[in-house]
Design a protein around this nucleic acid. Structure first.
Lengths: 110, 110
DNA sequence: TTTTTAGTGAAGCCATCACTTCACCAATGG
DNA sequence: CCATTGGTGAAGTGATGGCTTCACTAAAAA
């Protein structure tokens, strides 16, 4: 597992950050616009935002005194890459298993 | 976000559990076969295993005195479903944005 | 049968981390 | 200018959760 994917799962492992991502998926939001529906302080949002940004799941930009936060859907890529990898590995294993049985012939296991 | 997906991200939020999944992707493993390379006790593995099972990411079966643990790749489905959902929502937003600009006509924003 | 191996359950320890408060800065509005 | 609004940084609190130890059960081996 890549360290990117690890950071992603770590970031998504928290319910508040998941909620933030869901909110931002509806469009850019200010820090307080995120804090309000979540019932937490803007300070807390700022801390979560840093984690999401470092994981590549969000980015933000300050204009005037308000900071606009957006998700980066591309950030989800390595999650999908990882799940595909696990699936592939598992299926390859089943295939190898099937090959082995084939080689052993139909009389195997009697 | 569905509660299944939440459970999945919670489960995958821990590095040890991620490592367990990676190990199991290579084939079924006993509890101690998982504990050994991870450098933790079998008790700890048992606890993680319960979380993974409840999240639908693994299943296990006890034969004799050993418990065989396997991953359930289907369990990853709702992670992918969720990432697709977020992407879709975001793209829909961009589309709406584009439509609005179209309706406003080329003279908009002057 | 005795011993060893594989795993479970309960209980406790400890570090991480989510969150708060408080002080502070900078932009905006009156 | 003064008050308000939006956000940041540092420091502290509290709870969750990952892990351990210890006592125990059951299967397999000797």
């Amino acid at each position: 597992m890549t360290s990117e994917a690890a950071a992603l799962f770590d970031a998504m492992g928290d319910p508040t950050r998941r909620a933030m991502v869901s909110l931002m998926a509806r469009g850019p939001a200010s820090v307080s616009a995120l804090a309000d529906p979540l019932g937490i302080t803007v300070t807390a949002v700022g801390q979560h935002l840093r984690v999401l940004e470092q994981a590549g799941l969000a980015c933000s930009e300050k204009r005037g005194r308000t900071r606009y936060c957006r998700i980066r859907p591309e950030g989800l890529d390595s999650i999908e890459a990882w799940t595909r990898q696990v699936r592939r590995e598992w299926e390859a294993r089943l295939e190898r298993l099937g090959d082995m049985l084939d080689e052993m012939g139909p009389q195997a296991g009697r």
